[in-house]
Structures are given as C-alpha cells and as structure tokens.
C-alpha cells in the first residue's frame, strides 16, 4: 500500500527497518489469530460412533480459546506500545 511508494528507498536505516517489520507483525497478527482460532475445527467432535476418538473436554476447549485470546490481546497491546510510542501510525518514514 502506502509503503510501496515508487520513490521509496531500497534499504533503510535500522530504526526505520525495525518499524517496517513491526508493521509487518501488525499485519500478520490477525492471520495468526485466524489460524489459531480455526484449530478447533480440526478437533474430533461429538462421538457418535464408538470408533471415534474421544472428544476434547469443554474445559480444555475453553482454556485454549481464551489463552489464544489473551495472547493476541497482549501481542496487539505490545505492538501498540512499541509503534504508537513513536508517533502516529501513518507517518511512514
């Protein structure tokens, strides 16, 4: 998007480079979230057949979903802390 301006320089100084990578992380975070939260789709569910594997216990399911949630929140907050501290998000170097 706005990062790929035609006159952008090819190599950046260390701080700008770090900010770019932080923004990459920012972009990547929801993708990670989707992948982690779609894991439950793979879990065995509703043992209707004796041969089916044992279903995941509800307590484990709750723990998994909420731990992912907390981790995502912490990651988002950390990214805000690091990026937000150094000025507004849209002023690309």
């Amino acid at each position: 998007m706005s990062d790929s301006a035609p006159n952008a320089t090819l190599f950046l100084e260390k701080r700008s480079y770090r900010r770019r990578r932080l923004k990459d992380a920012l972009r990547l975070l929801p993708v990670v979230g989707v992948l982690l939260w779609m894991v439950p789709v793979l879990w065995p569910s509703g043992a209707s057949h004796p041969a089916d594997p044992t279903p995941v216990a509800m307590s484990s399911a709750i723990t998994y979903v909420f731990v992912v949630w907390v981790l995502l929140i912490l990651a988002a907050a950390a990214l805000w802390w690091v990026i937000g501290e150094r000025g507004s998000a849209e002023t690309d170097p």
Binding site: M38, P40, V41, W43, P44, S45, G46, A47, P55, V56, A57, M58, S59, S60, A61, I62
Partner: peptide
C-alpha cells in the same frame, strides 16, 4: 463444566468457521 451436558466439544464445524 466437564461433567455437564455441554461438557464435551461438540461442534458443527461449518458453523464455527
């Protein structure tokens, strides 16, 4: 929770996504 009627993971996968 585990001992209740909803104690097992039972999910319509299409609905989850």
């Amino acid at each position: 929770i585990d001992n209740s009627t909803i104690g097992e993971w039972s999910m319509d996968r299409s609905r989850w996504a």
